[in-house]
Design a protein around this nucleic acid. Structure first.
Lengths: 192, 192, 192, 192
DNA sequence: CATGAATGAGAGTTCATTCAT
DNA sequence: GATGAATGAACTCTCATTCAT
């Protein structure tokens, strides 16, 4: 697969992403993607065999592109509270934004039965917990935070984010609702 | 569409429920249900017009059958902490149990777009928040609990439950993970 | 089949007629008739086996009920021209009226292939020709009409009526169009 | 829907025409056409969406191919009477021929309710009247014809043709019957 | 590599017809 | 007689997938 192919592959993934954002995972057909990409039916099959493969490659692409946004915005002088606030703000932005892959991702992983339970979602969740836990511990050390059970608190935050994410997709959450809960969380940590 | 046989209607709903439990919502076809019920193609249409209608009637049936379980187990002598613990235990049982409609429900409400955002899920969520809030306030009054922001705490619990529910379906949560988080939550409330 | 049955049979035919008037022949299903009659599916089959049988019995019923209207209105003093005019007026009324069986009849006889070409329609057509021919001859005898070829003129009138009838059903004819043509016909006969 | 192969499109239309000729309009299913064409179910949908679309395209095709036949046979020396005779002969041929779309066309336009009453059939009918009227006027001018009401006579001819066409489909008309009536019509016009 | 016509499996839906009650 | 639930055949339509060009 030469250079040209890599470009087209990327083009298909980018275009298909829009389709998954709009329709979730299960309702997306190869036809949908072919039409969105404006390529031939056979052409798509030269690059991908199924919508599953396409979604997985999109997720991988996303994983490679992300993370950076968060870490790039952290400066040397930021305190633990600053960084945690930044992190939560980032999460808030993501979950309130309409056009994301959340539904597609959930729909896909719903279907994955018991198989591969050490999957991407678990790894991301656990990574999140760990990051927050470290931040809380750093905050405790610096005297910003008070917390008797950093791991519990970190898990709590991640579960809450997960809960808000799913609610956002099923019945909508308002910015106010998110802010109130994030405030509740921060107040539980910060020493006033 | 008359009522035909109420028994058969019930039979179809019960059987279809198993199908939805197993396959979620989007992948379920009328044919799947016909085959699970061992009835004729046309026979199903005598009772229901679409998988959507069937799912909605199952949910309604569930709603009528539930609620009671929780309230029935509350006795006069139970303290607020007892009741909250009972509630969380009930939720835990539900989210750890394999055969439930969670995936089907999420898949269904994912598809409901912006329409009807005052839907069942929102109502259930808000009802849950309210119940917990009342319990916390009762616990504060009785000296069992300490909490500066009962509504925030109640929302926190519901978001966490929601988050654990979705995680249970996408990558599995262990009983230990659930217990740890529920313990964390209770410890934050109870005055030792 | 007792008395009661005869009534019900009549009721079904009358009700089914409305269905045929509305939907033609080919689109009418046994279900349509069952629903229009508000009887049970099986009940209909006790009386009739098919929409074809029902339509045929309706046509027979019609045939028995009709004719009279025309002949009843003829009085002793009427001249041939009066009677012909009356006949044409009757035909005009029928073909302009929306709710008739014309479409159902045509659709039915379209399907009858080459079989039974000595059918009802032919008999009615030929009877019409004969009636008109006699009228014209009577008119000639009484000095009202001039006509070199009574049979040709009679056929002409019947073909025209047939043509207007079909046009009325496919693209609509206005009363004015009908009047003009009937006037043209009468002028060709009457001696001024 | 692209044009795909124009040849195949034409092939389908030609083959479907035979089906419509044989079965009329309402009874023809996409399956019938698929089978007549010996193509796959999906294949047909690549070209056409419904039997209605197919019939309409057949009619359009017919319209483009016809007209010429009549006009091509007219020569400079032909008199009005010659041309009218030619026209009637053409109509006679068409209505006596077994394999035509008449039934399909009628069945289709029966279904078109009040909608689009300025339809193809009306336009064809009115065009016919106009052509004949012009011919009669030309014949009067040249001394061939005598007629006090050319428009009435022209309409008369078109109604008769329409009437014979429908009779041909419902109970059959013999060549003799047609000839007699056409002769009657011509005799009414020609000055002997 | 790329195209897009073609296939055929499969889901949805409607009805004529039967049959136990 | 009468009912209406139940069946199964028939039709519509859509897609994943292939393959000749």
């Amino acid at each position: 697969m030469g250079e040209k192919s890599v470009q087209k592959r990327k083009y298909i993934l980018d275009t298909a992403k829009k389709v998954f954002v709009e329709k979730g995972y299960k309702s997306v057909t190869m036809k949908d993607i072919v039409e969105a990409c404006n390529i031939s039916r056979g052409g798509l099959y030269l690059y991908f065999d199924s919508t599953e493969q396409i979604l997985l490659e999109i997720l991988q692409m996303e994983a490679e592109e992300t993370d950076d946004v968060f870490t790039q915005n952290i400066t040397e002088e930021d305190t633990a509270a600053d960084i945690l606030t930044l992190f939560l703000k980032e999460q808030k932005k993501e979950l309130l934004q309409k056009n994301n892959l959340t539904v597609a991702i959930y729909e896909y992983f719903f279907g994955q039965q018991a198989a591969d339970k050490n999957n991407m979602l678990r790894r991301q969740f656990e990574a999140g917990v760990k990051v927050i836990e470290k931040l809380i511990e750093a905050g405790i050390a610096s005297g910003e935070f008070y917390c008797e059970n950093p791991k519990g608190a970190a898990s709590n935050i991640m579960y809450v984010l997960e809960g808000m994410k799913i609610n956002a997709q099923t019945f909508g959450v308002t910015e106010k609702m998110v802010d109130e809960q994030l405030l509740y969380i921060m107040e539980g940590l910060i020493i006033d």
